[in-house]
């Protein structure tokens, strides 16, 4: 089952930007695209651990600030020829508020 929790306002994240949510299992980066879509991914690049929340957001992608790997915000898959995957988490916007699935985060953290 899904338990949505409110983690903040959409406007707390700049368009084409990200903010971090601290969870028991590590930081999750919450991205806001130019079209006001919201995506949540682990804030750790599988390449060298770069903080993806600090990357440049373009379209539905983010570029890691350390070595410019590009990831799809939708799937978490590395783009181009780089191979790697970032865990993704359900996220949505409702009434200008950002909601994350607490059970997903908790279940993972318990595992």
């Amino acid at each position: 089952m899904t338990t949505w929790i409110d983690i903040g306002a959409l406007d707390d994240i700049p368009a084409r930007g990200a903010r971090v949510v601290k969870t028991a299992m590590g930081c999750v980066a919450v991205f806001r695209t130019a079209a006001d879509e919201v995506f949540a991914l682990s804030d750790r690049c599988p390449h060298r651990g770069g903080p993806l929340s600090e990357g440049i957001v373009h379209g539905k992608s983010v570029t890691c600030p350390l070595h410019s790997w590009v990831f799809s915000l939708e799937t978490g898959q590395a783009q181009g020829a780089d191979a790697g995957e970032v865990p993704t988490y359900p996220a949505r916007v409702e009434g200008g508020r950002i909601l994350l699935d607490a059970t997903r985060l908790a279940r993972r953290s318990a595992a």
Binding site: I7, K22, A24
Partner: peptide, 10 residues
């Protein structure tokens, strides 16, 4: 951080 869920998780 936008939010800190570690407390809730604990």
């Amino acid at each position: 951080p936008l939010a800190n869920l570690t407390l809730e998780a604990a």
